[in-house]
């Protein structure tokens, strides 16, 4: 309906153009005609001179079959996490690891702000009181619209001082993609659909990926969290 609204406006513009160019001189016509066709021919020549390898090969969308392991890892993620076997799941990767020494008996977990904190922070009590917090950032592949951003997303930063553990999220990874739709009058007669960039419907079209900050803490360490930070300790009810 929107295009229907613009149709009369565009028609009016083109009508005006047709009216205004009615009395063009032969010389003007020649310049216009030759100039325009020359630019178009040049564009076609340049287009076919562009090597395909020039395009960023990293900008490759994952297919469904390539992502099967990752999608399975997603399905299994939370069961495995709360059963303490997250490290064994195929398709779950270690993004970063930290080993932090804590002298205090009380640990406060805070963040810079509530934005960008991993939604899941899980802790497991160790058998010992060795004064070391072992932190592992587990992640599945992080895919948005079929593009794999796992490598591009920077790791979190951890700072431990005076019994306060700061989890600092990385900057949001911003990316712009320029894509082309095959012209309608071509795609109409093609198999598949060159009109949609994101057209494989059995693939999670929006995005997928899970992550967790998994901590192994000394047995008797008490843990408090700042508002907005949620932490589960395995085997302990809240």
């Amino acid at each position: 309906m929107v295009s229907l609204f613009f149709l009369p406006i565009v028609a009016l513009i083109i009508f005006a153009i047709v009216f205004l160019t009615k009395k063009i001189t032969s010389k003007g016509f020649r310049y216009f005609f030759l100039g325009y066709t020359a630019v178009l021919c040049l564009a076609v020549a340049v287009h076919y001179a562009i090597p395909e390898k020039n395009f960023n090969s990293d900008l490759k969308r994952l297919t469904y079959s390539e992502s099967e392991v990752d999608l399975n890892a997603m399905d299994e993620f939370y069961d495995a996490l709360y059963e303490g076997r997250i490290a064994d799941v195929e398709g779950v990767y270690v993004k970063s690891q930290w080993s932090l020494e804590v002298e205090e008996n009380l640990l406060q977990v805070v963040s810079r702000d509530s934005e960008g904190i991993p939604s899941t922070i899980v802790a497991e009590r160790k058998e010992t009181n060795d004064g070391v917090i072992e932190v592992t950032h587990y992640t599945t592949k992080r895919v948005v619209e079929g593009f794999d951003f796992t490598e591009q997303i920077q790791p979190y930063e951890m700072e431990l001082a005076d019994g306060v553990l700061k989890i600092l999220p990385p900057e949001e990874y911003r990316m712009r993609i320029v894509a082309f739709q095959t012209d309608f009058e071509i795609s109409q007669f093609q198999e598949g659909d060159g009109r949609e960039l994101f057209d494989d419907m059995d693939f999670p079209s929006y995005g997928f990926g899970e992550e967790v900050i998994y901590m192994k803490i000394p047995q008797h360490l008490q843990v408090e969290t700042a508002p907005g930070v949620y932490l589960d300790i395995l085997g302990e009810e809240e």
């Binding site: 951003f149 997303i153 949001e172």
Partner: peptide, 9 residues
């Protein structure tokens, strides 16, 4: 989505 912002033109 989470820490990724993707703009497609």
């Amino acid at each position: 989505v989470d820490l990724v912002s993707l703009t497609v033109s």
